[in-house]
């Protein structure tokens, strides 16, 4: 069991692969642990990459401070871990809470970054997200930890996935209850609540950045990701079809090949995204990885594709949408 000592407290981490290979760090969402990235660890270590996973302070097997967690410690822990493992630069991926760490790391430690992959995340909380956050917090402390996890389920997964996994969900919820301590997660949520928005700092991020957002992510919505796209100059916004907040768990195979493509492209020095918007293919076997988004990507109603009703025709006939081909499957 690997433990990293940070300010006299223990951080649990797992490292797979060779330090000389491109390293991808995956940072957990709020109630996750390193085990949630098992698929990713296996996928990338078999493709010439190394993978670094760690439980944030307050999570899983890492220390759970009783009094306070300073959000800043998350970035410092990662920087310290990379130093310990003698990794100069890495690709930093993370989801939700972990996505915020990704962005802060990109701002504070640009010299350690090859590329950033913030997923289902935000740089500021609008009134809606704040309200949801407060509800989640109150539900957790007033009712219990399993209630928090249950509240997350419909935000995290599509109806299809929930239906297909109905028998496994109670076990997954119990595992989350077993592997987490309420006060640790509470401290993490409070560290985020004290946190000030940092949209104005995003322009400092110069590294290639692949922003990923689920089509039906009602927790961290399109607007939150649109802010990232507009502010980070070297970025691409990639929309993940038919999935919600925790798409890394629902479609890991599709996410892996997209991250693999991103890493290969940056390694070859071919990353040329300039704040473009793409839609990821939803079939893992498709040759095409993604294609350009034609409509207004900030709307759920495909407003650009609807003809304004005329006097003669009030039914709203849709225009034919011709989509140019985008990137195809990476050559492994």
């Amino acid at each position: 069991m690997a433990l990293f000592n940070y300010k006299n407290v223990e951080i649990y981490y797992e490292f797979a692969g060779n330090v000389k290979d491109p390293c991808i760090v995956f940072i957990n969402g709020l109630t996750q642990q390193v085990q949630h990235w098992a698929y990713y660890k296996d996928y990338f270590k078999n493709r010439g990459c190394s993978v670094l996973l760690f439980d944030l302070m307050g999570q899983g097997s890492s220390v759970k401070p009783t009094l306070f967690i300073d959000f800043q410690d998350n970035q410092n822990v990662l920087a310290g871990l990379l130093d310990k493992l003698t990794i100069d630069k890495a690709y930093i991926a993370g989801i939700s809470f972990g996505g915020v760490v990704v962005l802060r790391f990109g701002i504070e430690y640009p010299e350690k970054v090859k590329g950033l992959i913030p997923m289902s995340t935000f740089s500021e909380m609008d009134a809606q997200l704040q309200f949801i956050g407060n509800n989640l917090y109150e539900g957790m402390v007033g009712i219990g930890f399993e209630y928090l996890v249950k509240q997350f389920v419909p935000f995290n997964f599509s109806a299809n996935w929930i239906g297909n996994n109905a028998d496994k969900l109670p076990i997954a919820i119990r595992e989350s209850f077993n592997n987490n301590d309420l006060y640790g997660i509470q401290n993490m949520m409070e560290s985020l609540a004290r946190f000030q928005g940092f949209t104005h700092e995003l322009k400092q991020i110069k590294a290639p950045t692949l922003i990923m957002n689920g089509e039906f992510d009602y927790l961290t919505d399109r607007e939150a990701h649109e802010i990232l796209r507009k502010e980070i100059p070297n970025s691409r916004l990639l929309l993940m079809q038919k999935v919600c907040h925790a798409f890394t768990l629902e479609i890991p195979d599709i996410v892996c090949r997209l991250i693999e493509d991103f890493v290969l492209t940056v390694e070859k020095g071919e990353w040329k995204a300039k704040q473009d918007v793409m839609i990821a293919a939803d079939d893992v076997n498709s040759k095409e990885l993604y294609f350009p988004c034609q409509g207004d990507h900030t709307r759920l109603i495909p407003i650009n594709n609807i003809k304004k009703p005329s006097k003669a025709n009030t039914t709203g006939v849709t225009q034919k949408n011709s989509q140019k081909s985008g990137k195809t499957k990476p050559e492994a």
């Binding site: 402390v141 007033g142 399993e146 509470q186």
Partner: peptide, 16 residues
């Protein structure tokens, strides 16, 4: 265990 998690809000609030 669930009730313990609710009850520690008293301790957490005062400790902090």
């Amino acid at each position: 265990e669930v009730q313990n998690q609710r009850e520690i809000q008293t301790q957490i609030s005062m400790l902090k």
